[in-house]
Amino acid sequence: MFIRHLSSRLLLTAVASVAAFAAVPGAAHADTGPIRVPPSPFGSLDGWDGGLGAVGGDHLTVSVVDAGAGKDGTSELRCDPDGGTHADPAGACRRLGELAGEGQDPFAPVPKGTYCTMQYGGNATAHVTGAWHGHRVDASYKLTDGCEIARWNRMVPVLPTTTP
């Protein structure tokens, strides 16, 4: 009798423990989010691009609207060697290299759930497409809050400076 009671109690404790563990929300653990790995310097040579489809060379199309006089339009940017119709190809390529050297993806959007200051930086928008470090790029930029303004400013001189 004692053993049967002990077995029932152990079973009940195990079931309760599993149920309690399953009820803990996923955000309760210490997750730091995805790990950002700098692009492979051989991305366009080794044929692996993280499943995005093989692309070669650093070639970007930068389109800017409503940034101010002389700053709107579409330009081409090539890196390594620097060139294209971009206003400052050497500076733009250097900035992209700095961001990558810091382990940042220069084209990543503001992470979902980020708290941003409520401020407006103007009507300017930009769209960058092409290939960089062997990966496809399709990124949009705007000045609708503090996070987006900081994201834009981090990309200067790839994107032009703006004044609201």
Rank of each mutant, 00 (worst) to 15 (best):
P157H: 12
H29Y: 12
L143D: 02
M155Q: 06
G43H: 03
A108C: 11
F42T: 13
G73I: 09
L99G: 13
E76L: 13
H135E: 15
E148S: 11
V15E: 06
T13G: 08
E98P: 03
S75H: 11
A69I: 10
P111A: 06
G26I: 03
T125H: 02
G91W: 10
D31T: 06
A22R: 01
S44D: 15
A22L: 07
G146Y: 06
H135M: 12
A131L: 03
V156G: 02
V37P: 03
G83A: 08
D31N: 11
S8R: 04
H5S: 11
F42L: 15
V64L: 12
K112L: 09
M1G: 13
C147R: 01
H29A: 07
L6N: 00
D80H: 11
A126F: 06
A27Q: 03
I149K: 05
A69C: 03
E102C: 04
P157V: 12
D66K: 12
P25S: 05
C147N: 01
G83Q: 09
C79L: 06
F107K: 01
D145R: 02
Q119P: 00
L60F: 05
S8K: 00
A16C: 14
L10T: 00
K112Q: 10
P89L: 05
L10K: 02
G50F: 05
G26E: 10
I3E: 08
P109S: 09
W132S: 14
P34E: 15
I35P: 00
L45K: 09
V55K: 11
T114A: 10
V156W: 02
S140L: 09
L6Y: 01
V64F: 09
V128T: 03
V110Q: 02
R9K: 04
Q119G: 02
P164S: 03
R154F: 01
N153L: 09
A108N: 09
C116W: 01
P39A: 15
R78Y: 08
R36T: 15
T125Y: 02
W132Q: 08
T162W: 04
D105E: 11
G83H: 08
Y141D: 06
V128I: 15
T125G: 08
P41M: 05
L6Q: 03
V18F: 12
C79K: 03
D138S: 13
S63I: 04
E98G: 06
A14H: 04
D88T: 13
M155G: 00
Y115Q: 04
D31M: 07
P157A: 13
G53K: 12
G53P: 07
E102P: 03
D88C: 11
T32I: 01
P25L: 10
V137P: 10
A124L: 04
T13L: 14
A22F: 00
P41A: 05
S75V: 13
T129L: 07
Q104K: 15
G56H: 14
